[in-house]
Amino acid sequence: MTEQTPAPVGATTGSSAAPVLVVRDLRAHVAGQQVVEHVDLEVAATGVTALLGRNGVGKTSTIKAVMGLIGRSGTIELAGRDISALPTHRVAQLGVGYVPEDREVFSGLTVTENLRLAERKGGEHRYDLVYELFPELKERGQQAAGTLSGGQQQMVSLARALLNDNRVLLVDEPTKGLAPRLVQEVGRVLTRAAEVVPVLLVEQNLQVVRDLTSRVVVLTDGRSVHHGPAADFLDDPAATQRLLGVHGGTDPAGAV
């Protein structure tokens, strides 16, 4: 009850530009079960906004609800346009890039095919950026994506989202299950990505959050309970302990 109430638009974004994605009173359900109760969040027009919370509080469901992959209600505004009633493919076409939790590359398709499938009509395809960030994908173009390592699959998944000119990227736990070296690599890619497109990032690794993000939104039991600058939140051991179950300030590895 002592948490900050949802901030008015633009107040805590630290940026003068209007947020690119505004979610108000989002509810979502899967197979008749409510998985998101009441989420308010904003993704700033630049940089990375983190979506935090313990396991099972509805972070992934929130992302899926924005994409329209699960049943949802509430308001979801993308650059001022309400997309909450649109089917998934329309949401994506309007410029929402999605990097799902378990990468979800098409394992029977080659790397090149995975990328070609992601090419959206109208608009450029930034193969130069993709191959600059992931030179390996060019070499492995003809390999079936299912035979790649977890880290490589994550690259394909990120590359699919970066290929198009998106308004915002929704990136769900990109470092999950990766070795420390690859976690750093993903961090580097996201930093570079955030230079071209704003990102909403779900991440358990608080060090990554600390390095990348300026703002956080924290969920508990399907509700957003905290909005604010990342540093303030991560430096408050009481808050991180209570909302995330970890000492954000003292544990640099930070993985739950």
Binding site: H89, S107, G108, L109, R120
Partner: peptide, 10 residues
Amino acid sequence: ENRSMVTALG
């Protein structure tokens, strides 16, 4: 393989 991911690509 994964219909929903195809729609999520637009």
